[in-house]
Design a protein around this nucleic acid. Structure first.
Length: 696
DNA sequence: ATTAGGG
DNA sequence: CCCTAAT
């Protein structure tokens, strides 16, 4: 993502000609009011696809070369730098919890032929766009300070490698071994592939055609709604790479929109500064779209070492990655939750090399379960039973963020199964902790009672979530260097632990209309809780910018939170707030809304709320207003265009009528209200009437 | 705190 | 639904 963003921004100065874009919906917005961002992105798309084609053409030959390279692993001369070069790449990926992005970056940082591979991997326009952008940025980056970067990378890689728990060394598992290396006879044991025999962490740097596997297994833990398994253990203690911890988010997942991303910490180089928000959605959309798996049968895709390292020789090393597991966890970063999945570019080069593919987190879930996208373990339904002061939780199943497993096409089903088992076992076997999240916020105070925390049977338990967290690795607080940008710990496990937004099951346990749960002051408890968390984070963040050293002083707790605080973000707080779970209006609710509006007119949403939704605490007047807005829109479009639970035409007609009426009587609602009020009958009406009169 | 509108 | 600007 970072790359993409970067790319995007890098182009800002290009003054792309605006490309008209039709409004996404006829909601009544200015038709041609396109945003700068939109036009730019459009331009990018065009540019990118164009560039992509050109590139593909010009490099078609190169492509073939690349494949040849695979067939002929480097021999002799290549040997020497194999290790060195190799490590950096791997290290990059590893210390960030195997991030697809890293893979990209890695490749991009190396000149020439690499891009070709990437392009091939992204046959589709969208993909190309992505690639193009990425490569461009990277290129500039590498050309500018490639040397320096490389160096740091290497250093880092070393430490990273050393810290990797289950290195490839001595691995007897052929599946995990690197065939490419075998060929060239190099001692691959030295390599730090990040391949873990147990499948825990696998070289994220190279992989293609990641397969997403879905499986279910019984809940191991009693929890509600959602149990999330953020990630594998962090193979690399952050301490080993103090300089790069500004990285931060590896992925995001959201209940509403699945969204994962990887921000490669990498260097502080300008090109890789934290992405900004503009255009995110667009890009995300692109990435998220239809293609989640594209696999031209590429022969091979090797990483080439930087020319300067190789002495200009064309050296490719094959990297084969078997398992690539990446965790996605939700984290409210700059990107609000938007379904977004990053591309996982994986290269597989096992003896034959199979296929390459881009794994876009698929939005394959048609049901609207946003969480479902590219998640393995799937499906969870929580049921709550409250009795007395007892709060009971039960889970049918739980969801695990993401587990990408890659195996050659030639692999047997059996080996696939084993691989999956290994990957899962590695994660589960690593020791787990359970985190409790309320409203997407992690509840850290273990001493609090459920009541105090706001977890009660009365509470909307759908705001409660559990997460499986890898057993925290003892990590010393990040040492802050002079670099303010390095404030964010890059410790994967930390990040994971922090990840605030656990997708919450939209179990609809409580539907206000049918049976509004009694409101209690628990709500406030929760709110205050959230506030405290947020403000906390804010403080930390604030301290962060001015003086990086402040971090050192912050107590552990704060330090933890820091991990999830995006660096240098304007709205720190907003990043931490989880989007409310979506709650489609039921027909009865619509009915109530229509009725209220008929009586009160538009523009008095507070009254509407009080009148018809007072007990529906989850419906704010803004919600009602929004709903009315959409209702009007819905009523104006063809029935075929409508989505979601169909609203009776009768109601829609009333909507239109009311809308038309109130549009003309905006000023006169006065008298109208008077009469309307009288018509309202129940207790609410009385109350509203009073207020109305008062307001008049 | 509400309202209105764009996103 | 979110976010903001304007009340």
């Amino acid at each position: 993502m970072v790359v993409k963003k970067r790319q995007y921004y890098g182009f800002n100065g290009f003054h792309m000609p605006p490309v008209p874009r039709a409004p996404r919906s006829a909601r009544g917005r200015g038709l041609n009011k396109m945003k700068v961002e939109d036009s730019q992105i459009c331009a990018f798309e065009l540019l990118a696809s164009l560039a992509g084609k050109l590139l593909q053409e010009s490099e078609s030959s190169a492509s073939s070369n690349a494949s040849e390279a695979n067939d002929q692993p480097i021999i002799g001369g290549g040997v020497k730098f194999e290790q060195d070069d190799d490590r950096p790449l791997k290290a990059e990926c590893l210390d960030h919890g195997s991030c697809g992005e890293s893979a990209l970056f890695t490749r991009f940082s190396s000149p020439n032929s690499d891009q070709k591979c990437l392009l091939n991997e992204f046959p589709h326009a969208e993909s190309n766009l992505f690639l193009e952008r990425s490569s461009m940025i990277t290129n500039s980056n590498s050309s500018k300070n490639g040397g320096a970067d490389l160096k740091s990378v290497i250093c880092k890689s070393k430490s990273a490698c050393e810290n990797i728990p289950g290195k490839v060394e001595g691995s007897s598992d052929s599946r995990v071994s690197c065939d490419g290396y075998v060929d060239n006879g190099l001692s691959r044991q030295k390599r730090c592939d990040g391949l873990d025999t147990r499948g825990l962490i696998v070289d994220p740097c190279s992989s293609n055609d990641p397969m997403e596997m879905c499986m279910k297994f019984p809940a191991l833990i009693n929890s509600v709604n959602n149990v999330e398994l953020p990630s594998c253990r962090d193979p690399v203690p952050s301490a080993s790479i103090p300089r790069h911890r500004n990285g931060t988010k590896l992925g995001i997942r959201d209940d509403d929109e699945n969204f994962t991303r990887c921000n490669k910490p990498l260097t502080k180089s300008k090109a890789f500064r934290p992405p900004q928000r503009i255009g995110d959605r667009r890009i995300r959309k692109l990435l998220t779209s239809k293609y989640w798996k594209v696999a031209p049968k590429l022969k091979d895709c090797e990483f080439s070492k930087p020319a300067f390292l190789e002495g200009g020789a064309k050296s490719h090393y094959l990297k084969r990655k078997l398992c690539y597991s990446r965790e996605r966890y939700q984290l409210n970063t700059f990107y609000k939750r938007r379904k977004f999945t990053d591309h996982s570019v994986v290269v597989t080069s096992d003896g034959g090399f199979s296929s390459e593919s881009v794994c876009n987190s698929p939005d394959k879930n048609m049901t609207g379960d946003k969480n479902g996208a590219s998640i393995m373990f799937h499906g969870h339904q929580a049921s709550f039973h409250s009795k007395d002061s007892q709060v009971k939780f039960s889970i049918k199943s739980f969801r695990v963020p993401e587990l990408l497993i890659e195996v050659p096409e030639t692999a047997t089903v059996g080996s696939l199964k084993r691989t999956v088992v290994e990957a899962v076992s590695a994660i589960l076997g690593g020791g787990l902790r359970v985190g409790v999240l309320l409203h997407g916020k992690k509840v850290r105070d273990d001493n609090r009672t459920l009541l105090q925390t706001g977890i009660t049977s009365n509470e909307n338990l759908d705001t409660l979530g559990f997460s499986l967290e890898p057993t925290p690795v003892q990590v010393s607080p990040p040492l802050c260097t002079e670099d303010p940008a390095a404030l964010l710990p890059c410790d994967t496990s930390q990040l994971i632990l922090r990840s605030p937004t656990t997708p919450i099951v939209d179990s609809g346990v409580s539907d206000a209309l049918p049976d509004p749960p009694p409101l209690t002051n628990l709500d406030t408890n929760i709110e205050s809780n959230r506030e405290s968390v947020s403000s906390h984070a804010d403080i930390v963040t604030d301290n962060t910018l001015p003086d990086s050293r402040a971090l050192v002083a912050v107590p552990p707790v704060n330090a933890e939170e820091l991990a999830m605080v995006p660096l240098n973000q304007k709205s720190k707080r907003s990043e931490l707030v989880q989007r409310r779970t979506r709650r489609p209006f039921s027909v009865s609710e619509v009915e109530a809304l229509v009725h209220a509006v008929e009586e009160l007119g538009t523009g008095r949403w507070r009254d509407v709320k009080l009148c018809s939704f007072e007990d529906a605490d989850h419906r704010t007047y803004v919600d009602l207003k929004d709903k009315w807005k959409t209702l009007v829109h819905t009523a104006q479009i063809a029935p075929q265009q409508r989505r979601g639970e169909p609203v009776p035409q009768e109601l829609l007609d009333r909507v239109l009528a009311a809308h038309a009426y109130w549009s003309q009587h905006q000023a006169k609602q006065h008298s109208k209200n008077q009469t309307a009020i009288l018509k309202i009958t129940d207790a609410h009406a009385v109350r509203n009437g009073v207020q109305d009169i008062q307001s008049i």
